[in-house]
């Protein structure tokens, strides 16, 4: 229907009516029974590959040292070494994941952790499944299937993750209290949605990271709506941010 495509009003009204539909995002929402949305941030191929490499190096070093020590014990040492090899191969990841809040040392280093699909801490069955199925991911050589699955999944799951229903996510860091530029708290002259409040707060918090020209430009966008000249818009926005944060 070409006449619809040609009318600009129609197009704009459509885009603004559904501003967030189909936007590509790395976030993954889980709704709890209480109706709370948990936001998880699944981790992609590159950080996971790096975390795995770190774990691989750690395991290699541990095995090398132990073999050196056990080599002195002769045949007994070889037997012990074989047991150790089994433990390190099959239980290193499982034990760390279950007992250390889903973090093997490599994942800890990269700020990752393993959770169930619904955001709950990973347990024995899921961790065992995902680590035993590593051998499917390794097929036919060098994690080929795992890499392809990870690239193709919207939440970056390898085959073991799909089978076990687990997710590798970025750990949530403790949020720092925001540091706002000095200004007197002013109430916003119009009602603000949550998203808009966040944007104004973000504007004030990130002021140090932005150039002065950019700050003036950004504030100038809504200077008219704030009913101040463009030069004072930034100060006014900081004031609104203070009123949003509240007294502390």
């Amino acid at each position: 229907m070409p006449h619809i495509e040609n009318s600009p009003e129609h197009a704009t009204s459509q885009t603004s009516a559904q501003p967030s539909a189909g936007l590509l995002d790395t976030r993954y929402q889980v709704e709890t029974p209480e109706g709370i949305d948990l936001t998880l941030r699944p981790a992609g191929l590159v950080p996971r590959a790096l975390a795995y490499s770190i774990d691989l190096i750690i395991r290699g070093v541990v095995m090398g040292l132990m073999y050196l020590l056990l080599g002195m014990l002769g045949k007994l040492g070889m037997g012990l070494g074989t047991i150790l090899l089994f433990l390190v191969t099959w239980w290193y990841m499982v034990l760390f994941e279950v007992l250390n809040q889903g973090r093997s040392p490599g994942k800890q280093w990269m700020g990752l952790r393993v959770v169930h699909d619904d955001g709950t801490p990973v347990g024995w069955p899921a961790s065992l499944t995902r680590n035993l199925l590593r051998f499917v991911d390794i097929l036919p050589m060098g994690y080929t299937f795992g890499i392809l699955s990870c690239l193709n999944s919207p939440t970056f799951k390898r085959l073991g993750d799909i089978a076990a229903g687990t997710l590798v996510v970025y750990r949530e860091e403790k949020p720092q209290p925001p540091i706002l530029p000095e200004a007197e708290a002013i109430r916003a002259p119009f009602a603000l949605s949550l998203k808009e409040q966040r944007a104004i707060l973000g504007f004030a918090e990130r002021a140090n990271g932005l150039s002065k020209e950019r700050r003036i430009e950004l504030a100038g966008i809504i200077a008219q709506q704030l009913q101040v000249p463009a030069e004072q818009a930034e100060h006014r926005l900081n004031g609104i941010a203070h009123s949003l944060v509240g007294p502390r």
Binding site: T15, S16, P19, S20, G22, L23, L24, D25, T26, R27, R41, P42, A43, G44, L45, V46, P47, M110, G111, L151, N152, P154, F156, Y170, R206
Partner: peptide, 27 residues
């Protein structure tokens, strides 16, 4: 910016790369 097809917000660098994977996957 209003016509961007990805959710624009500051991310960590690793997350930005993950977004790249998703973008490549979509197209």
């Amino acid at each position: 910016l209003t016509e961007a097809s990805v959710a624009i917000r500051p991310r960590s660098n690793w997350e930005a790369m993950d977004l790249g994977v998703l973008l490549a996957r979509r197209h």
